[in-house]
Nucleic acid binder design. Structure first.
Lengths: 185, 185
DNA sequence: GGAGACATGTAAGTGGTTACATGATTCC
DNA sequence: GGAATCATGTAACCACTTACATGTCTCC
């Protein structure tokens, strides 16, 4: 569901192609949602079937033709309905393969887990850099889409990204230290 | 994949039924993985097809019969292989429907978002209680499965759960305050 | 001439959810 | 008598991934 409404939400800023949407997902929403190109194109097709968006082919002399999607009034209506009708239990999706590995680490031992955690710590540190890039992209979209009140909500979302990464780093560092104190290396 | 190995990992502690596994998922692994009964039974069937587990029906006079699954040497081997061969990019699955809503909140406005965040904060606070219960369940499993070195890894996992929830709470509180300072109510 | 960005899709498969179906036992 | 827990499953569906397929333009 979220992908569906994410696409509608972005199309509300401006008409776009599937390719554009994929790029925005990559460099702005990416820390809490991602989607493969193939899924985006398919979802756009079903959205068009449901009359939530409408597409027009834009013939360009320079480069391949582009199918540009525009949100319809119905699309806007359904987007707002989704946003206002929030179910009691919208779980943040906790599925975490890495934690499954940690949980089962008795099978590989503390030394091995230590190495896993150290590698993971590096990943978390690079996550911060990706978030910085995202935060810096916000003003760019401000110009591109000529939005203003949106910025507040984008900032609150990005801030959640930072809180998350920072807590991951803290946990990894603590756990590494703990394992070392126990004599693992 | 993770469900598959989660089941194998738990079955390594002790032979169990699908129903048992479901219960353990609910009160011990739940904060980073969950699964519906139907999925667990199906997965156990494919694991048996692949010779990773083996099942025997236990006839009980009191109550319905139970199909008890036992991990095979092949299952143990594959579990360990999975744990040692960690791919470079095991993403923690970030998909977060709630954040998608926050990100798109310009469509409903700051007052509405404030209410969403306040409800969410309560949910986070109840998450802490669930984690406390999980942490307290650890010794129980220690006796049940007669494990000891596992405890260390369970503790490290649960600790991650706490870090996560605490950062969620902090973010929600900060964002609520921020919105209030801006005059939303 | 080749790499990489631009651009759009289809097909098959996996993992997860929802809905359905059944029936015994225990405790109030 | 009724609700909750124990216990096991099937079928249909939905969301997402992986692999495949095609072709243009731009910059080095």
């Amino acid at each position: 569901m979220s992908l569906r409404y994410g696409l509608l939400g972005l199309l509300k800023y401006s008409p776009m192609t599937g390719y554009d949407l994929k790029k925005i997902f990559e460099d702005s929403v990416n820390y809490f949602w991602s989607a493969k190109t193939s899924q985006i194109y398919r979802e756009l097709q079903t959205l068009e079937k449901n009359k939530c968006v409408q597409s027009n082919i834009e013939i360009s002399k320079a480069g391949p033709n582009r199918r540009v999607y525009t949100i319809t009034p119905l699309g806007i209506k359904l987007l707002k309905e989704w946003l206002t009708n929030m179910p009691e239990e919208t779980d943040e999706d906790n599925r975490n393969e890495f934690l499954m590995r940690v949980f089962l680490s008795s099978n590989i031992g503390g030394n091995e887990l230590l190495r896993l955690l150290e590698a993971r710590l590096k990943k978390y540190q690079s996550d911060i850099k990706r978030l910085d890039a995202t935060a810096q992209a916000i003003p760019k979209y401000k110009e591109k889409f000529d939005v203003d009140k949106e910025l507040l909500y984008w900032k609150i979302s990005v801030s959640r990204g930072y809180h998350d990464v920072q807590s991951h780093i803290q946990w990894a560092e603590e756990s590494i230290q703990y394992l070392k104190e126990l004599g693992f290396k």
